[in-house]
Amino acid sequence: MKKILFLLLLLASFTLMAAAIEDADPEQDARVKMTTIEPERDVGYTMGDLITRSIILKVKKPYLLQETSLPIVGYEKRRKGQVSGIELAKIVTEQTTDADSTTYTLHMTYQVFTSNVVAKPAALPPEYIKFSDNKTLFEYRIPSWSFRISPLAVFGNVKVEKDMSPFRGPLLMDVSAEQQRLKFFSIGLGLSLLCLLYIIAANDWLPGMGGAFAKAYRDLRKLPKDMQGLQQDVELLHQALNTCAGVSVFNAEGLITRHAPFAELKTELEQFFLLSRTVFFEPTAPSGLQNPEAWLRQFCLNCRHVERGLGKA
């Protein structure tokens, strides 16, 4: 009789436990949403290799992960009494929470401690973790992941002639650092040459070289060195100043107020307008220049440098 009573009590306790731990089918349990990030390759692993898989579990509130249910580092699972040779080496858990769920990211790193003379199948073992809301508890299964373990050496005698494969190239020295350095210096050299070209070149095939003073400078060099040429020189410069300012310019301030960088040429601009006054309007007014043509070319060059944002030469 006592035995029967004991059996009844035992049966009742099992029934209660069965009610507390719900039988959760991982594929159908809507409370958990799982995403797995598996290793990139599933072949070629040998003794000592580390394999990391990440499991993202999004569980609805109020359920929380039972940390005691996480797999234990160093524990090696057995199958049919035999060790699998795959051991959990490291586990990192991250947790984020939003309005209606909690997301757990498990980074599990396994190490291979088995080998074979030929390739053999293996698997990262399935893991069972538990979630609870203080009242109910359910278990969730993380599926296993299959891969192949490669042998450390080719089994048996190997004839090198027969082992040559077009897919396996010769061993090469690592020259990436030198290549990177070469690229860096080549780009530097190229940029330096472009800058030099930009400064000294007279043609307008580079951006910014079609500026008003760049054009004027090219035309200045073609004009004759006489009084008529001087008038044309001054006129060219006037046109360049007007184009640069966007309005007719009659004094240095007229340009500087519109293009502040020309302030560093204020003295030269005033000298230019003095020269223009002598050439076009008041021949008796002294310009104070011994060689106005040469001065005009230098002035135009200075203006061209300022126009290109290079500053006064």
């Binding site: 009659f250 006054r277 008041e282 007014a285």
Partner: peptide, 11 residues
């Protein structure tokens, strides 16, 4: 103090 008209004088 100029002996000739400049554009500025017109302006």
């Amino acid at each position: 103090n100029r002996e000739a008209i400049l554009p500025e004088d017109i302006h």
